[in-house]
Nucleic acid binder design. Structure first.
Length: 594
RNA sequence: GGGGGCGUGGUGAAGUCUGGAGUUCACGCCGGCCUGUCAAGCCGGAGGUCGCGAGUUCAAAUCUCGUCGUCCCCGCCA
């Protein structure tokens, strides 16, 4: 009496023929039951996998009572399966456990959906019952992969002497970049904390503080609209180093990524990763995050058409724009399919799109062929090295628009399904500023990024290059980093060029710039989006599938039904009043009977 | 803020274009049979306010408008 019996001695997924004859006890969920009357089989599932249990229901009537997702503990002997009944699709398929004892630990109601990967269940329902969804093999594998990846990051960085440091998640709001998530302060009514968009300034202060090499698995918050690769909260591997520069950062991150990919995929990817300047990436791929798993590069045609009689082309070149095209290959598109691309181009803001099809005799068929000379058509065919059936898409417009358009068409028409291949790329030499649609300058990275030349930044800001770099995987931006400004004077000048006055800079960032005055080492760093990295490594379309408890596109959690209004008392303690129209809308919705 | 897709027993789908009895398929659920299955099989059964609300019509899952939910995309994401 009193001696507690263990619920299990072994994990189901570990049983092999080496264990034949052993008495084992397994604990897990009833995955699937196959009742033959005189003999009952069921698969028991635990975190390690599945094993088949055989029950003689005359000996063990409990075998008849089992239903899917009951939790049970089963004692029995590991036995080889009889001739011809070995299941080669199952890791433990050579053996089975002959049950001598079955205890039902808990029962389960009829499930809202099946615990398997065969059915694509509505995602809202999956999120509402996420605890069941996580039992599915695919999701369980994603959780495990995430844990393994993060462990690989920690091990690699620990080995390199990095210090893991936590930074606060209740910080001062700095109305730059994305919208802040705000938290009202009870002790300082009317004041608010913000949740960090990244640990950016704190990690820089750690450099000032003498932490030579820093990293953190950091939760970040950005209150912007959702996408399949964006959530309100997400996780970054954040790193920073003192007396460090771009080459050191890239070198270190490559080691981390290689270790993560080895964990996740079991392959060693070659180093160093490819590098490309921002300018080259924009010219060849029309984007700063090119998918290098396929070619289909953007080709400049300005020299062919600058003097063409076809004004749509020559006019664009002479007006300072560009004529560029893609050879998207033999897609076999019908006339309506091609017209669909033209419509698509117009949706994207282009004046038009010209398509051409390479005929068997090498000529180019196109609605605009009659406006072009024989020589122009021949040079086109040669430039694209066409083979019969190839489709050319040509756009003439403002240079930036042409690039964006062709870049999007390239991805749409050429991007491989899935993520079997991994194409990592560093995009370097980002511009300091991006031009907004209004013509204003906005920092391409954050305003603490070091320009290559302060003089150039002042005199020719549109062309100025910064010490900023992005990591791209399969056309997805995994993260970005930069060499930081460590000189308070340069920091002030950057604010100045951005149109932030001294007073404004002082009131917003004075606490930070002050720190730079006390002996700041040159430093640099990076942040990798862990959710995006894992989603791609796991072949998932959305980061939601590598986040245990994500939110829907409207920021809701169907399981807990958050967010929810709070008690008036809670608001009162915080000194917060809802705006009248918000209050009215809430009261209105409360009148609706439940 | 804008564009698009989807919403049908517990689950996944077909039916919607071209209105005519809640019809069909697979899984699950309930009952029965069955000693080698592994998505077990066979027989029988239950289960739906076709997201919700208006409108058109003799008649609406189907057409129209609105609304809610969800997904994808543009904007946004220093």
């Amino acid at each position: 009496m009193g001696e507690e019996q263990p619920l299990r001695t072994d994990y189901a997924g570990t049983l092999t023929s080496e264990r034949i004859g052993d008495q084992v006890r397994l604990a897990g969920w009833v995955d699937r039951r196959r009742d033959h009357g005189g003999v009952v089989f069921f698969d028991i599932r635990d975190a390690s996998g599945l094993a088949q249990v055989v029950v003689d229901p005359d000996q063990l009537p409990a075998g008849r009572d089992l239903k899917m997702e009951y939790t049970v503990t089963v004692g029995g002997e590991v036995r080889p399966r009889p001739e011809g009944t070995i299941n080669v699709d199952m890791a433990t398929g050579e053996v089975e456990v002959v049950a001598s004892d079955i205890r039902i630990l808990s029962t389960a109601e009829t499930l809202p959906f099946m615990i398997n990967d065969r059915v694509e269940v509505d995602e809202r329902l999956r999120l509402q019952y996420r605890y069941l969804d996580l039992r599915r093999p695919r999701m369980a594998a994603n959780l495990r992969a995430r844990s393994n990846a993060i462990r690989a990051m920690r091990e690699t960085l620990d080995e390199l002497g990095f210090l893991e440091v936590e930074t606060p998640t209740l910080i001062r709001s700095t109305p730059e970049g994305a919208r802040d998530m705000l938290v009202p302060s009870r002790l300082n009514k009317g004041s608010f904390y913000a949740l960090p968009q990244s640990p950016q300034l704190f990690k820089q202060l750690l450099m000032v503080g003498g932490v030579d090499r820093y990293y953190q698995i950091a939760r970040c918050y950005r209150d912007e609209d959702f996408r399949s690769d964006r959530q309100l909260e997400f996780t970054q591997l954040d790193i920073e180093g003192a007396f460090w520069g771009q080459d050191g950062v890239l070198e270190t991150l490559e080691q981390v990524i290689v270790a993560v990919v080895e964990q996740a995929r079991g392959v060693t990817i070659p180093r160093p990763f490819k590098r490309m300047t921002y300018a080259e990436s924009m010219a060849r791929y029309g984007t700063d995050k090119p998918d290098l798993r396929f070619g289909m590069e953007i080709t400049d045609l300005g020299d062919i058409f600058e003097d063409s009689d076809f004004k749509a082309f020559s006019g664009a070149v002479k007006g300072g724009g560009a004529v560029r095209g893609l050879n998207v290959g033999p897609l076999g598109l019908s006339r309506s399919g091609l017209d669909g691309l033209v419509a698509k181009a117009k949706e994207l803001g282009a004046k038009g799109l010209v398509w051409m099809v390479a005929e068997d005799d090498g000529s180019l068929r196109s609605p605009v062929a009659k406006f072009l000379t024989e020589s122009e058509l021949q040079r086109l065919g040669a430039r694209f090295a066409t083979t019969p059936g190839d489709i050319l898409l040509i756009a003439a417009d403002e240079t930036k628009l042409v690039g964006t358009l062709l870049g999007q068409l390239r991805v749409e028409l050429g991007r491989p399904k899935g993520h079997d291949e991994l194409a990592f790329l560093w995009v370097v030499d980002f511009p300091v500023f991006e031009e907004t649609e209004g013509g204003d300058l906005a920092p391409a990275h954050h305003p603490f990024t070091s320009p290559v030349s302060v003089t150039e930044m002042r005199d020719n800001p549109k062309a100025a290059v910064s010490k900023a770099y992005d990591l791209v995987l399969n056309g997805s931006e995994l993260g970005s980093g930069s060499v930081r400004i460590h000189d308070p004077e340069i920091q002030k000048q950057v604010f100045e060029v951005l149109g932030i006055s001294d007073e404004e800079a002082e009131s917003r960032f004075g606490w930070f710039i002050k720190a730079l005055r006390y002996g700041t080492p040159p430093h640099a760093g990076f942040a990798v989006g862990i959710d995006r990295l894992l989603a791609i490594l796991q072949g998932e379309q959305s980061i939601r599938d590598v986040i245990p408890f994500p939110k829907t596109q409207t920021g809701a959690d169907p399981m807990t039904e958050s967010p929810k209004p709070v008690d008036d008392f809670q608001l009162m303690e915080l000194g917060v009043n809802l705006r009248p129209e918000v209050r009215a809308a809430l009261d209105g919705s409360r009148e609706v009977p439940e």
